[in-house]
Amino acid sequence: MIYLLNFIYGFMCTIGFAVLFNSPKSALLKAGLGGGLGWSVYFVVHHNYDLIVLPTFLASLVIAILGEVFAIMEKQPATLYIIPGIIPLVPGFGLYYTMLSLLEQDYNLAIQHGVEAMLIAILIAAALTIVLSINTYRKNLP
């Protein structure tokens, strides 16, 4: 039940961001589906094994693969489905928290949050780039 609820939360959250980013109407549901599934993957792994970095990577992989599949189906750029989808995962809050700790002169906490945010950003980007590279490689095959 808690998994289903989290899927719904992730789905709605992604659709909200898709509208904020002016996504065309035809892409809203698909973006939401990608974001919801991605968040579910994150939540299931995070909930059972109490990790943060690995589930973020897995979730980004799922979102990126779904995004590329939708992109091929609809002949649209994959960004349309990926950008709103990764929002629940991105370390925006970590980045903000880093800045807040810096303003409060708590430098240890700032480094802790900063490194974690950086690590998460690197992993999301890595997952997206891996899928993108495989897709480019596939297109260039003879």
């Binding site: 961001f17 929002i87 370390p91 925006g92 980045l95 950003a121 999301i124 980007a125």
Partner: peptide, 15 residues
């Protein structure tokens, strides 16, 4: 705060 923070920008930067 999520409607404001530059999460996408930082991910794109790494990408």
């Amino acid at each position: 705060i999520m409607v404001m923070v530059p999460g996408v920008a930082i991910t794109n930067a790494v990408r």
